[in-house]
Simulated scan of single mutants.
Amino acid sequence: MTIPNNLSQHDLTQRIKTKALALGFDLVGIAPAQGSPELTFFERWLDAGYAGEMHYLQRNAERRRDIRQVVPGAQSVVMCGLNYDTDYLYSTDCGDPDRGWLARYAWGSDYHDNMQEKLRQLQAFVAELVPEEVASKLYVDTGPVVERVYAKYAGLGWFGKNTCILNKKLGSWIFLGELILALPLDYDRPALDHCGTCTRCIDACPTDAILEPYVLDSRQCIAYLTIELKGSIPETLRSQMGHHIFGCDICQDVCPWNRKRTSTSEASLQPQPSQVHPSLAELAQLTPQAFKARFRGTPLERTKRRGVLRNVCVAMGNSGNHAFIPLLETLADDEEELIREHAVWALARLRQAGNDATPGRRIS
């Protein structure tokens, strides 16, 4: 693919970046469509079993290793970032054990639709600039692309020790999406690591999922346990999960780079009242129909009622609140075996805590 005569490579690059920002993206950078040491590490990470049951990461391994197998002739990856932070408290400031915690990214509508529409418009813009047909594909966390790697080489941010992409301005509250192009563009410089000697994310993880800087064992991560894991949560980890019912923000909440906050203006990413720190008692009583009505169009649809109520049972078991026992007794007879199992565990935990507690005091 060649650049049109009326545009230099530099001009084309700048027009694409300007358009991306005009579409509402907060960050944009361009990386070369080539291999990197991080992609080799990703394969070793998979081989170590750290992906757990996320078998989709194992599929298309060759395509993840070489993005040119995703888009033949690919030369550039336009990486775009969208801030999703809002001016609500962090999970580390909301310790009410009677209310569940949903990861910040799940407070609004499903971000995939928002990001994909913006990227489709960017793709159409490139097609207008370059009359000759340009092979391209766009993804938002849905394709065989290790997005964080290209985000680093596009200058959007560096790998934090918690493995999230960190940006000096936006911290780690960033959704990533990409447009892969069979088109030569100017590339940005890779972002430099600014974590220094800080280990706050590692020290704060309740389940010790960050084995060492930049190495996460997903099988121990609360986000994995509450979202990706479809079956039973290992009993050895349940008591460490606190009140988390969908994802976890702790390693990001404690990060110094997230102290300076910039709230998103995207309407679809504004928190829905039902999503922020919801009542465990209310969630425990959701019928299948009520669950669909409440969480339709949100990320929680992915985990379905059985997954969310499984997590609610664990959170109630960790709450120390004896008043949850009647609700858990009802859930112990739920039609879903997964919910029944975790309700029985939570009942045993609360009753044991009650036997050990001082009379007249809240179980904790």
Rank of each mutant, 00 (worst) to 15 (best):
A33G: 00
L269Q: 05
L327Q: 06
Y105K: 10
R63N: 08
Q270R: 12
F25H: 10
E128Y: 05
A191D: 03
A127S: 15
Q240T: 15
N321A: 09
Q272S: 03
R261C: 07
D26Y: 06
E132P: 13
E341R: 15
F159Q: 15
M316S: 10
Q285Y: 11
G177P: 02
R362C: 04
G196D: 03
P359D: 10
S8V: 01
S76N: 04
E133A: 11
H194A: 14
L156W: 06
D186V: 08
I363H: 05
W101C: 12
Y90A: 01
R99K: 00
Q14E: 15
N258D: 01
A209M: 01
Y187V: 09
D186F: 00
R65L: 02
S36N: 02
N6P: 11
A204P: 01
G160C: 13
H322C: 12
K292N: 01
H277M: 02
I3W: 02
S239I: 09
C198F: 09
I180C: 00
Y214Q: 15
W257H: 02
Q34E: 12
N114E: 12
P288H: 13
R65A: 03
W107Y: 01
D47Q: 06
V70D: 07
A315I: 03
L23Q: 14
G35I: 04
I180H: 00
E53D: 08
Q116F: 10
R261D: 07
Y150W: 03
F295I: 07
Y153W: 07
I222T: 04
G196S: 01
L286M: 04
L27E: 11
R99L: 07
E329R: 04
V28G: 10
D188M: 06
G108D: 05
K17F: 01
N60M: 11
F246R: 06
H244E: 06
W101E: 09
V134S: 03
N162C: 06
A332R: 12
M241D: 02
P271F: 10
L89P: 00
I3D: 02
R200Y: 14
R64T: 00
A74Q: 04
P184S: 09
V146F: 05
M115E: 11
R306W: 11
R294S: 05
T40F: 04
V130H: 09
T262N: 14
D203P: 08
